[in-house]
Design a protein around this nucleic acid. Sequence first.
DNA 1: GCACTATACGAACGATCGTGCTATCTTGTC
DNA 2: GACAAGATAGCACGATCGTTCGTATAGTGC
Lengths: 210, 210
Amino acid sequence: MNHHADTSEPRPTRSDGRRSRIAILDAAAALATVDGLEGLSIGDLAVRTGMSKSGLYAHFKSKQDLQIATIDHAAAIFDAEVVRPGHARGEGLALLRGLAETFLDHLERRVFPGGCFFAAVGSEFDSRPGQVKERVFEFITTWMAELVAAAAQAQARGEITDAIDAEQVAWEVDALLLMAHAAFVMTADPAALERSRIGLVRLLDGLAVR
Amino acid sequence: MNHHADTSEPRPTRSDGRRSRIAILDAAAALATVDGLEGLSIGDLAVRTGMSKSGLYAHFKSKQDLQIATIDHAAAIFDAEVVRPGHARGEGLALLRGLAETFLDHLERRVFPGGCFFAAVGSEFDSRPGQVKERVFEFITTWMAELVAAAAQAQARGEITDAIDAEQVAWEVDALLLMAHAAFVMTADPAALERSRIGLVRLLDGLAVR
DNA sequence: GCACTATACGAACGATCGTGCTATCTTGTC
DNA sequence: GACAAGATAGCACGATCGTTCGTATAGTGC
């Protein structure tokens, strides 16, 4: 939520400004998963939010500034829609399963029209060094660390084997999630989600301490 | 190779034209993995190939025409760099392993500067219906079918269990490949490739008929 | 209620986008 | 070696890009 509280902005004080800013960022985050953060045009965004192009510039100094704010906004949405509900499912193995399930659910519920925001934008900026890529990478790293911590906790509780390291477990879980994203967005077929769900069960059952 | 032999083009007869066309498509395929097929601009491409913008238009009727030709060109490269070398590794399980290895190798050798062409472009157009998406999806489907066939062959030869269907095996293999692509392009760290290689060994060893 | 300032708009900018038209050079054919 | 056709360049077009400026409006703190 207050993920972007420490930016250089003097923090908007007027209520109408805050409402507009949120409306802009909601539209920008949704649009970015379809047209990309770069393909996103100020003109389109203005039309979509019922504002003028110059009106947008009251909130953002530049397009890059808008892109970074959009990333932070999407991070807050992802936290609220995936990470926190995932933690509500329990700890250790239940947490690891929970995070995977809430991730797949957020794809199915189409929280963003173009699937996972960070999978979409990460793929767009992976070869474009700069502040935008760094911010995206930062969040993806946080997400991976979340999975690793859950896997390590599951090992510490004796729920899965510690014959392989937690990073590897998280890697294989995330691979199935990324695959689900790619295929589901491309085909709109829930069977893609099901394939990855089956894979997750196979993977985690195979790691279970018997 | 002759993947685009049946397009409406009257097929260029002059040698200089053919050379130029190939030079353009080579540059376009490389650029598309970094800036995207949409982000690719005719002006940039002209500068990069030492031609004029209008000179490019002698070869392609429109930008979309160029995009589709670029996809077909990239498909030919992928075939030559990944699929055929993969088949040279053997049949059945050896083929499945071979395709995965040649794919990871083509990432490491940076055949395209932005990783796998179809992972990059597929992610860009997954939410943009049209001829371009259809062409990309077509190739990705072909690739998946290749993996499924290899898995089925491995089962028929009794090399891996047939307790799970071949589509599921191919799915989990491709998930690890996609994850390797995403992480390797983002970080340029070969450790990403190694993580997926370990995952592949774990996956296929787990399916081995003992 | 007043002053202050964040918010929003209209208009315009230089640059670049994809795309045609026309002329000039170059290649392959007879 | 002439001639037709293909290949390339120069130039200009309308549209759209991100951005800036000046100005009017409206919410907030005193």
